[in-house]
Nucleic acid binder design. Structure first.
Lengths: 141, 141
DNA sequence: GCGATTATTTGGAATTGTTCCAATTCCAAG
DNA sequence: CTTGGAATTGGAACAATTCCAAATAATCGC
């Protein structure tokens, strides 16, 4: 009945983990979907407050952590700057523009991913791999 | 005259950047070379104190930062845990063992590095790329 | 060598991002 | 209802790092 489909998949994923779909979780997730610019927890907090003025920063951290657990959101770390969050579930690398500080998603073709995994010697069993570029982007995307 | 060759290349690199080879910098660097287990700043601090009991943590941070600037050492970040330092200058990825917390260097063949760089669309100019695996290692290395 | 200048080190305070905690509040089921 | 677990909240605590101002050390022009 709710026209916002994302909310349904959210509810489903949460239920799968035995968790509830609360307004806070829904708004945090929708904020991430709405503007996919890899916001920090503080930025998410600011955006969510527009809709839920009484939400606390702790709750934003809780919700983000929950979404990461449910694999609806990826936490992205670049050096020691604040963790950023992205709702892109396809395999992708990140490009960090040194000038602007902006982060871009770079799609990772399965073939490349496969080749990268080949570099692991016997005895190393990787559950995930993260690829991060840093440099300069003139792209508008 | 000094039989420790590393110290010479250190002196050289520092000089190239207009910096001095101080005892603190030399000992911090030698500690990294001696045990290449990706220590944190605190761990380096503890090891250096054996030789220079009066060194301060701030100086260890300074020295590490200097060595990173001179490209003698790489800073390695894994999620939000403390930065680790490694004196391995060859292109390599890192494998983070989720059980033990240990970090392993994984050599990166130029061909793989080249292919990874190919995923960047036009307009993205990368100055460096970082590849980090996470998983389980049974290796002894 | 000798003072002037600059680089480096030092200890402690400050900062930042995040987590913890104890006290509510909110649901959901019996 | 009411009882129990889940979730939220605000503020304190925390960990890693950086900042800062004072002390120390090295280097340079003379």
């Amino acid at each position: 009945m709710n026209p916002i489909l994302a909310s349904d998949s959210l509810t489903q994923r949460l239920a799968d983990s035995g968790l509830r779909a609360t307004p806070q979780r829904e708004v945090v997730y929708s904020v991430l979907l709405r503007k996919r610019d890899h916001p920090t927890a503080e930025e998410v907090f600011a955006r969510v407050k527009a809709e839920l003025p009484t939400i606390s920063l702790a709750t934003v951290y809780n919700c983000l952590e929950t979404l990461v657990q449910c694999e609806l959101v990826r936490a992205v770390n670049f050096e020691r700057s604040p963790t950023r969050y992205c709702p892109n579930l396809r395999p992708h690398a990140h490009f960090h523009d040194e000038q602007t500080g902006r982060t871009y998603d770079i799609d990772l073709p399965p073939a490349v991913l496969a080749e990268v995994n080949q570099v692991l010697p016997a005895g190393f069993d990787a559950s995930s791999v993260e690829i991060t570029f840093r440099g300069q982007a003139r792209a508008t995307s």
